[in-house]
């Protein structure tokens, strides 16, 4: 039985439990709520710490390993802390044909980090991403939740400069 009130010990906010309560009737089984629950939990921390995964497991009523399994499958869930701007550059066929590899190495050089890493100042995390579904406007990337399409190196450079100086 679910409860709209957050369990005392939970690292997740009461808002999480309220959001889940509202979503529950829309899903056939509680396990179908794993993805929305993970999204909601990630919105609270920016990533998914172990305690959050355990709280989600407890809420859904499954073994924590099963939640880890789902969270590790999808690249949009971060199992490590990420920087303020999370760059996800698509490196699937269409984007690579249009120069995505160059974009990745440009970022690595400019930010001084490898793929999967975060800059020491915590501003950027760089990741490769599977198809973003933006093949018509390749090469494409996501910066946090926003799409940036028809990329080239100057455009990417501009974006990095702007983000660098944002507070």
């Amino acid at each position: 039985m679910s409860t709209s009130v957050a369990p005392q010990e939970s690292v997740l906010s009461p808002k999480f439990y309220e959001a889940m309560k509202a979503l529950e009737p829309q899903y056939p089984r509680k396990t179908a709520l794993i993805l929305p629950a993970l999204h909601q939990a990630q919105s609270e921390f920016g990533w998914l710490p172990k305690e959050a995964l355990e709280a989600v497991a407890q809420y859904i009523g499954v073994h924590p390993a099963q939640i880890r399994e789902v969270a590790s499958f999808y690249t949009m869930f971060n199992l490590k802390p990420v920087g303020k701007t999370h760059l996800k550059i698509c490196t699937n066929v269409a984007c690579v044909l249009r120069g995505a590899d160059d974009l990745v190495s440009f970022c690595e050089k400019k930010l001084g980090i490898a793929c999967g890493e975060t800059t020491p100042d915590g501003k950027f995390t760089l990741s490769e991403e599977e198809c973003l579904g933006a093949c018509g406007t390749a090469p494409a990337m996501m910066a946090n939740d926003d799409y940036i399409e028809n990329l080239d190196i100057p455009k990417l450079n501009d974006f990095l400069e702007r983000s660098q100086h944002e507070r």
């Binding site: 499954v62 073994h63 390993a65 099963q66 880890r68 399994e69 590790s72 499958f73």
Partner: peptide, 10 residues
């Protein structure tokens, strides 16, 4: 009856 073994990553 315990789903402790799982497939991590993909």
């Amino acid at each position: 009856g315990i789903r402790e073994m799982v497939a991590i990553q993909r």
